[in-house]
Computed example of a mutant assay.
Amino acid sequence: MSNPDLTEATAAAGAAIEQAVAVFMLHPQTYGASVAAGYQNPLAGYVAGRGGVLGEVTGATVSAVFAVFEPTGLAAMWEEGVAVRGAAGASQVYWEQAAEFGRAYLAGADGLERVAALGEKLIAVTPTAAAPLFAGWRAMPLADDAPARALQVMFVLRELRAGLHFNALSLSGITPIEAHMLNKGRRYAAMFGWPEPYADGADKKDRYAEIEHTTNRRMAELVGAALDPAEADELARLTTAALATLKANVPR
Rank of each mutant, 00 (worst) to 15 (best):
Y188F: 07
A9R: 11
Q92D: 13
A104P: 08
T10Y: 07
E221K: 09
G119E: 02
A162P: 01
L227E: 07
T30L: 01
G89M: 09
G108F: 01
A44H: 13
E113I: 00
S170N: 07
A90H: 13
V250F: 09
P229A: 01
V21H: 13
G136W: 10
P42K: 10
K121V: 00
G108V: 06
I177L: 03
G108Q: 07
L164C: 02
F155W: 10
N41Q: 12
L222A: 05
G14S: 12
L26M: 14
P251E: 05
A244Y: 03
N41G: 11
A150Y: 06
H27L: 08
L6R: 15
K247C: 10
M219C: 13
A129M: 12
A146C: 09
A232K: 08
F166V: 02
E178Y: 03
F155T: 11
A143M: 08
A202T: 14
D203G: 07
N3F: 00
A11W: 08
V125P: 10
A135M: 13
L227K: 12
L43Q: 15
L118T: 05
L151W: 04
P71F: 02
L238R: 14
W95G: 08
F166M: 05
E96P: 03
I17F: 06
N167G: 10
F69A: 00
M1R: 08
L171R: 15
D206E: 12
G108E: 04
M154W: 02
Q92L: 09
A33P: 04
A87H: 10
